[in-house]
């Protein structure tokens, strides 16, 4: 209880820090920390697979990617001039809606909630015979019942991969014209 409360508090504090901080380098670091804290909480919530993935992907890869980008772009965020009232209002309304929505939700850890009872026999029991006793049910599910989602996930990664190549690859010619026009880009 104490651990989870302190992790949750830390998460909230980190999130606010990220929102307020102007130095991008620090913000990226805090994002890594946020992911890491999130991952530890997931561990408490009995989701070790997600926790490991989050730690690796969220705290690891995405931090590296962002740092790499920062190296190419610049580390300082310019202070935003526009008033924060409209975004705050939108966020407030959305948040209030969500809180309102939680009121009818099954309580945390409720073992009679539909999530736990709708599927009967549950995934753990069902997957044992289906997966021939694979101990990690999550892995089993990824490859079987939700295997198609996993295929989709792979497709997403593939899409992102070629998209990144496509976006970052510059034509030799393109670069030249760019240089000759003093990096102003081409107008319409």
């Amino acid at each position: 209880m104490l651990v989870s409360v302190s992790i949750l508090t830390l998460l909230a504090v980190t999130a606010i820090a990220i929102a307020r901080i102007g130095d991008l380098w620090a913000a990226v670091m805090f994002t890594g920390i946020f992911s890491f804290l999130g991952a530890s909480w997931m561990l408490i919530l009995d989701a070790p697979d997600v926790a490991f993935t989050e730690a690796a992907v969220g705290a690891g890869i995405s931090t590296v990617l962002m740092l790499g980008t920062l190296a190419l772009t610049g580390k300082k965020e310019k202070p935003t001039k526009s008033s924060p009232i409209v975004p705050l209002f939108v966020v407030g309304v959305t948040g209030a809606a969500l809180i309102y929505g939680t009121l009818d939700m099954p309580h945390f850890g409720d073992r009679h909630s539909p999530v736990q009872t709708r599927i009967d026999p549950g995934f753990v029991e069902k997957s044992q015979p289906d997966m021939h006793g694979l101990p990690n049910v999550v892995t089993g599910l990824l490859g079987s019942y939700r295997g198609y989602d996993t295929l989709g996930e792979t497709a997403v990664i593939f899409t992102a991969g070629i998209a990144v190549i496509l976006i970052l690859r510059r034509e030799p010619k393109e670069k030249e014209t760019e240089r000759s026009t003093g990096k102003k880009g081409k107008s319409l």
Partner: peptide
């Protein structure tokens, strides 16, 4: 056992998230 399905879904969602991030950064 806690329900494994949310974990399964979120593994996918995390990967989708990093793909989006990568594309955005590019």
């Amino acid at each position: 056992y806690s329900n494994p399905l949310p974990s399964v879904l979120m593994l996918t969602a995390i990967v989708v998230g990093i793909a989006t991030t990568a594309l955005a950064l590019a």
